[in-house]
């Protein structure tokens, strides 16, 4: 599903040049659950942003479902992103002005799904995430665990092929964290590819494979048994 080769990302200011990704090459197959680990500043998030088509690399190749997307413009990236990729963030990133239902509905609006169909799909996913009873609440009225469940619901409502999770349990206690990890595992078992950035060895153990990074490069790959 994902094939990147010699990917480079360099951040430049007037005086300093920081290499965030240094000719990195990774493959991710469809249905895989991959965890990316490494110390702060090693390039995990930069990699995730490029994989999520939020950022573009300076050099190298990025094939997404066999399509070269490394140099797509913003409009094309947005188009590809909204149909294929779901995001889960450490800080949930729900829109405070929208209710639970409306937050989950948002990706469907951007993909042009009709109102009736949207309602059905949002209710289904909220039900699945066991958060239906909170559908009319605003994010600030929910606990952290509930907010992250809403974020997961929003990430999957469009049935994306790939979910990118950036430290999804970073702001949660262990019980809520485990709950979110179980949700991601369930999704993966249903066929969704998941790439997760984490600092937690415990969370990484839910994945099939751990890629360890240092200074913008992959240094080790562990296959989980």
């Amino acid at each position: 599903m994902i094939k990147i080769r010699d990917l480079e990302k360099i951040y430049r200011t007037e005086e300093v040049e920081t290499v965030a990704l240094n000719k990195i090459s990774i493959d991710v197959k469809e249905g895989e659950f991959v965890a990316i680990m490494g110390p702060s500043g090693c390039g995990k998030s930069t990699l995730l942003n490029i994989l999520g088509l939020l950022d573009d690399p300076d050099n190298g190749s990025f094939l997404f479902n066999n399509i070269e997307v490394a140099h797509f413009n913003e409009r094309k990236r947005a188009e590809l992103r909204k149909h294929n990729i779901g995001f889960v963030f450490q800080s949930f990133n729900l829109i405070d002005e929208l209710t639970v239902f409306e937050n989950v509905e948002l990706p469907l609006i951007y993909t042009g799904v009709k109102s009736g169909e949207r309602k059905k799909r949002v209710e289904e996913v909220l039900d699945k995430m066991q958060i239906m009873h909170r559908r009319n609440h605003y994010p600030q009225q929910l606990s952290g665990g509930q907010q992250q469940r809403v974020a997961v619901a929003r990430a999957v409502v469009n049935n994306p092929k790939l979910i990118l999770a950036d430290e999804p349990t970073g702001n949660l206690d262990s019980s809520n964290g485990n709950e979110v990890m179980s949700l991601l595992t369930d999704l993966n078992e249903q066929g969704t590819t998941i790439i997760m950035v984490t600092h937690s060895e415990h969370d990484a153990r839910y994945s099939h494979r751990i890629i360890r990074m240092l200074d913008g490069q992959t240094v080790l790959e562990n296959i989980m048994v």
């Binding site: 999520g52 939020l54 913003e74 409009r75 947005a78 188009e79 992103r81 909204k82 149909h83 995001f87 990133n93 729900l94 829109i95 948002l106 990706p107 951007y110 993909t111 929003r154």
Partner: peptide, 8 residues
Amino acid sequence: IRKVLGSN
């Protein structure tokens, strides 16, 4: 968030 969710 809106951009991430697909808004252009």
